[in-house]
Amino acid sequence: MSEAPNALLKLEDLAVHFPVGGGLLGGPRGVVHAVDGIDLELKHGECLGLVGESGCGKSTLALSILGLQAPTRGRVLLDGKAVDGAAGDRMARARTVQMVFQDPFSSLNPRQTVRRTLETPLRLHGVKAKSEVEDRIAEILGHVGLRPEHAERYPHEFSGGQRQRIGIARALILKPKIILLDEPVSALDVSIRAQIINLLLELKETLGLSYLMISHDLGVVEHMSDRVAVMYLGRIVETGDWKSIFTNPRHPYTKALIAAIPDPFGRAQGAKIFGEIPNPLDPPTGCGFHPRCPEARDICRRPPIPDLEDLGQGHSVRCRRVRELAA
């Protein structure tokens, strides 16, 4: 990957390990490598799609970017500056990175009006003049397609789609540069999803935002992303621009993910895979994907873990047999 100095968000060898189990006596029974050495860059104005199944570590990754989970190893750089969990840069981080949550029902405080939800963070970050607070709230509601009078209402008075708009407004109120989108439409009614997807893409253009989007919905990822990273067992197994990932996937796992999506037109699909994500307490040796991989050979089972190999044009794959298995 080219070393762009102006990467908005940069993860360097980020790892988060959790000790698990352990009874009353004695130490932990094992360590889960939820995130294990992630290098990632988010450039200005870009949407990076992060794809993976449950347990692949994508949520833990998001938490550590937001400063809610201290990394075991590695660094998070925002705007070129390394951040840690210290109280001082928590406020600065809040003005740089914000998040839109998956479930529009549990992500809004049922006891607070929209105005309170938007006003408190403004005051907390030094916007105290009444007129300015009013202007900012009106402006942001306009951006997400809500009317000024909506500010006086409580969350239960809104539909799921409108609630998600409020969640987006809350994420934007501090004018951050980066938004983490955690499955932003998967909890919404199917007929509402297009509204929110279109809104997010418009906001990205008009406000010059950068998105890191976590999703398992490959259709949404293909539609919205500029670049895509595929995660498996805490590591990135393939990354590249959206077109190469979707039209020329090279890692067997990426191929399997794409093949697993039911095609409504009944077109021929690629090979499916079997089995489930291995126990993270006892990960397989060598390539983490080999127990499920249709292409696995002896070489794949042997340690160490394969490296992320650059195939050119920003397309990297973590697979020993990638050259053999030419697309």
């Binding site: 937001l66 809610l68 992500s107 809004l108 405080n109 963070p121 994420a171």
Partner: peptide
Amino acid sequence: SQGYVQAAKVLGY
């Protein structure tokens, strides 16, 4: 663990 509590943390509360 509710989203709005997470959101408040992210907003710097």
